[in-house]
């Protein structure tokens, strides 16, 4: 099965709202899109549509959190992590407040709206904030886990969510852990460390390359911060080459996080970075954008081949 990440998120949030009366939800005139509306319809008293006012929204959430509430803040990823950034930095993170940010349309998933609506640097900003936990779900089950985990764990969280439909990846009882990644496909020639949509593209690429006799390991790094240091080092050692893959600028996101770990440990191996290559994107149907900007299965496969050539 496959499910839209935003739908799963909206439904889980509503279930959580039933269990915990302290959960409150905010949105900035996009509740129909982010699916926070599902919560809003069920619990109108605990739902605040702030209008098109992201800075106001995040700062309001900061205040709410000091009264024992657990605010979940929603809008398009790009507006949340830009207009909402000052309150996220100065209040939520500096204050280490119990605020949960849901960035609804990550990467290029709001494809047709174009560059102004794509979020391709949000992880760089969120990852650089002390106290922030950054989770990137890659299917319905991990979306459920990330949302539930954020609700029950103190502190600032950023959930990188998508408008898109992702295939199922995990069994419903899979045991996720914050600070861990998961080997979702084993292999020994090279490891692709991916998050979100790119986990699926990496698996596709791996299956294609298997026909050519290449054995590709795929790691879902659903916890980008904190990151699974041990797993990264183990993959570098066991497969001798790394490819990172993300729907984000190659600067500042998952690729940077992985290379920091490798460099720190002095464990560098040939590494390739699949992502948006420091450029602004454009409007088009989603699949065409993923292809043009090199973040589809072909893009990952190209990265793998380059890494393998360098490994020899």
């Amino acid at each position: 099965m496959a499910q839209a990440i935003r739908e799963v998120y909206g439904n889980v949030l509503t279930e959580l709202g039933e269990q915990n009366k302290d959960i409150v939800v905010l949105d900035a005139d996009l509740s129909g899109s982010t699916k926070s509306k599902v919560f809003g319809q069920k619990f109108p008293d605990r739902f605040f549509n702030m209008g098109i006012a992201e800075s106001n929204m995040v700062a309001t959430a900061a205040g709410l959190s000091t009264t024992g509430k657990i605010p979940f803040v929603n809008t398009f990823t790009v507006f949340l992590t830009t207009l909402g950034l000052i309150a996220t930095r100065a209040q939520v993170c500096y204050g280490n407040l119990n605020v949960k940010l849901g960035g609804a349309y990550c990467g290029m998933s709001d494809a047709l709206d174009g560059a102004t609506h794509h979020a391709t640097e949000d992880m760089a900003a969120m990852r650089a904030l002390p106290n922030m936990t950054l989770l990137v779900p890659s299917d319905a089950t991990s979306t459920r886990w990330a949302t539930e985990y954020a609700a029950k764990t103190w502190g600032p969280f950023y959930l990188r969510l998508s408008r898109d439909v992702y295939p199922d990846l995990y069994a419903p009882d899979y045991k996720f852990e914050c600070g861990k990644g998961a080997i979702v496909r084993d292999g020994n020639d090279v490891t692709v460390i991916a998050c979100g949509l790119l986990v699926h593209k990496a698996i596709e690429a791996a299956n294609e390359l298997e026909k050519k006799g290449v054995s590709v390991r795929v790691v879902d790094m659903y916890s980008v911060k904190p990151i699974d240091r041990e797993l990264i080092l183990k993959c570098a050692e066991e497969t001798g080459a790394i490819v990172t893959a993300e729907e984000h600028n190659i600067y500042g996101g998952l690729g940077s996080a992985v290379s920091e770990v490798l460099a720190w440990a002095g464990a560098g191996v040939p590494t390739e970075f699949v992502g948006i290559r420091d450029t602004f994107t454009e409007s088009a149907p989603y699949a065409q954008l993923l292809a043009k900007y090199g973040v589809d299965a072909n893009g990952v496969a190209a990265g793998i081949e380059k890494a393998l050539t360098r490994k020899k």
Partner: peptide, 8 residues
């Protein structure tokens, strides 16, 4: 794709 007329 490749249009001068972007969504925004």
């Amino acid at each position: 794709l490749d249009s001068q007329l972007q969504g925004h």
